[in-house]
Simulated assay, not measured.
Amino acid sequence: MLTFVASHKLGLTYQLWHQVDTQSPRHGGESVAEVLKAHGVRHVFTLVGGHISPILVACEKMGIRVVDTRHEATAVFAADAVARLSGTVGVAAVTAGPGVTNTVTAMKNAQMAESPVLLIGGAAATLQKGRGALQDIDQLSLFKPLCKFCATVKTVREIIPVLRKAIAVAQSDTPGFPVFPVLFQCCLLWCL
């Protein structure tokens, strides 16, 4: 019993049940890019960070223009402008921790304008949640008052359905309102 508890606390149990498929030619970033491309997204605004780099690389490969900004709020303001001018979903992708928290003002602006903005936020790896990992904060509670849809994606399998739902919700009912799915780092690079 003590061995099981120790292996659980170290994350070894999780790794045993969630093995990486080393033969898979794809990663989660490619799934994100496919969904965005299928919904007509032509631009992704960002401040480049390690948590979201697989998304950005995949977007460039799929022909979605990645526009790097100097601040995360600027990325969301630009996505908001695209949403207002085109009527489609504006997309911003930012890294975890301060990258996400820096977008609060711009997300509130998008909410007040009822703009359909999709903010994709990176997060600490699932195994490191609650263990003092760098940039590990409770992002969902921060964005629930601002967005009409917030979700956490913990496995690669969840990426496509959650993104599809987020985009559908952003464009339904009252036109606009931002949405915020959080993608954990392990979903983008590998699944532990």
Rank of each mutant, 00 (worst) to 15 (best):
C186A: 08
C59P: 04
G121H: 06
S172N: 07
P25E: 13
G99F: 02
L134V: 02
R65C: 01
L16T: 02
V57F: 15
P116C: 06
S141P: 02
R65S: 00
V5M: 05
P181M: 14
V66M: 02
C187R: 03
P145K: 02
C150E: 09
G99K: 00
A79P: 07
A79H: 04
T22C: 12
V182M: 13
T13S: 14
S172V: 02
C59I: 02
S7Q: 14
A96C: 12
V66F: 01
M62Q: 01
V153A: 14
V5C: 02
L146P: 01
D80K: 05
A151I: 05
P25C: 14
Q185T: 00
K37A: 13
C150R: 05
D21T: 00
K129Q: 15
G132T: 07
T95F: 09
T126C: 11
V82E: 13
G121W: 03
E158T: 00
A79G: 12
L140K: 09
V41S: 04
D138I: 07
V153C: 15
G99Q: 01
L142P: 08
R157F: 02
P25H: 12
L2Y: 08
C191R: 03
V76C: 11
F4W: 12
R131C: 11
C59M: 03
D21L: 02
P181T: 04
L134Y: 12
P116R: 02
V67M: 08
C59F: 01
A125M: 08
L56A: 08
K129A: 15
H51D: 13
K148Q: 12
E60M: 04
T126N: 13
V48Q: 03
K154N: 11
M107P: 00
H8R: 04
V182A: 08
L163M: 10
G176V: 04
P175L: 01
K154Q: 09
G40P: 06
A81D: 04
P25N: 12
L10Y: 03
S24E: 11
L56V: 05
P161V: 01
P25M: 14
L183N: 04
L56H: 06
A133F: 07
P98K: 00
M107R: 03
P161L: 07
V5Y: 05
